[in-house]
Nucleic acid binder design. Structure first.
Length: 284
DNA sequence: TACCAGGAGAGCG
DNA sequence: CGCTCTCATGGT
């Protein structure tokens, strides 16, 4: 039992990984990143060749963190599966240690329902409000701001639409509430998706209110570890059209066909590199 | 000020 | 189908 653990790991850009739009709850304070994984508050610090974690309460088994950070993944092996073309090489060169996390499916699903037509800063704000108001308070290290669990489906199903709208989620409020209800009532079982083929899992997710193709792919990729899932949002669409189909008009359907074959078995990883690349290029 | 944001769903022809 | 409009709210 201890509150600190250091993991040996190479090629892991913690800052990029925690801020690249796959997860919305991490906050930086000097050289530490503080966040919540499940029902634990934890802070992380990156050093050359290692990541150090510190919890508020003693921990016997750190597998939950290794799993979340996907420390077993050999990044060089992942990068080797990418297509050997100029756009992909540029995207990889722009960010060496970008990784995919493995999030809790419910938190991931709810977060991305709230993400539609919102900037990442705003998504963070909405989720922070939601957790602050409806999550369970957690023990944190002395001197750190309060932290909360992500509210359960059962709890959110009992919150009114007006209360959700008060968290600034606007028209997404009824979507989140209805999805929470479907899970709380057992009409939809998030755990069952793990065993299903990707196409079936995607179709199941898309039955949920507020979940279309893009959000379903995000949940498959970030919450279920389906690395072939390739979310096509406005940024990635721009990247694909600009880099692979210049001066041609291509439908979204055609782009999905392209991504399904061109980027290989870890297409989702490639997608995250393209997304990060485009977003940073736009910022200058 | 005007435009746009890690979209989805409904209403058209 | 494929296109367009609306939805709520804040950042740039």
């Amino acid at each position: 039992m201890e509150t600190t653990r250091t993991f040996a790991i190479r090629d892991y850009d913690l800052a990029a990984t925690l801020t690249c739009g796959q997860v919305f709850r991490w906050q930086q304070q000097v050289h530490w990143w503080a966040g919540v994984i499940g029902n634990r508050w934890v802070r992380l610090r990156s050093e050359p060749g290692s990541i150090t974690a510190e919890t508020a309460e003693p921990v016997a088994d750190w597998d939950w963190l290794a799993h979340y950070l996907q420390l077993h993944v050999d990044l060089a092996e992942v990068l080797r599966t990418f297509p050997d073309d100029a756009p992909m090489l540029a995207a990889v060169a722009a960010c060496r240690g970008l990784r995919l996390l493995r999030q809790d499916p419910w938190e991931c699903l709810a977060s991305f329902i709230l993400s539609s037509t919102k900037q990442i800063v705003q998504i963070r704000q909405i989720i922070a409000l939601l957790c602050e108001r409806y999550g369970e308070p957690l023990a944190v290290k002395h001197g750190w701001p309060p932290a909360f669990t992500f509210p359960s489906p059962a709890l959110l199903a009992r919150v009114t639409e007006a209360e959700l709208r008060a968290c600034k989620m606007g028209f997404r409020a009824p979507y989140l509430r209805a999805t929470a209800e479907m899970i709380a009532s057992g009409l939809f079982e998030p755990g069952r998706l793990q065993q299903l083929p990707v196409e079936v899992g995607r179709a199941e997710l898309m039955k949920l209110p507020g979940v279309g193709r893009k959000i379903a792919d995000c949940v498959l990729l970030f919450g279920y570890g389906c690395q072939s899932a390739f979310p096509v949002d406005v940024w990635v669409m721009k990247a694909l059209r600009q880099l692979y189909f210049p001066r041609r008009r291509v439908t979204l359907r055609r782009l999905h066909q392209f991504t399904a074959t061109h980027f290989g078995p870890r297409a989702g990883y490639a997608q995250q590199y393209l997304f990060h690349y485009m977003r940073n290029a736009a910022r200058g």
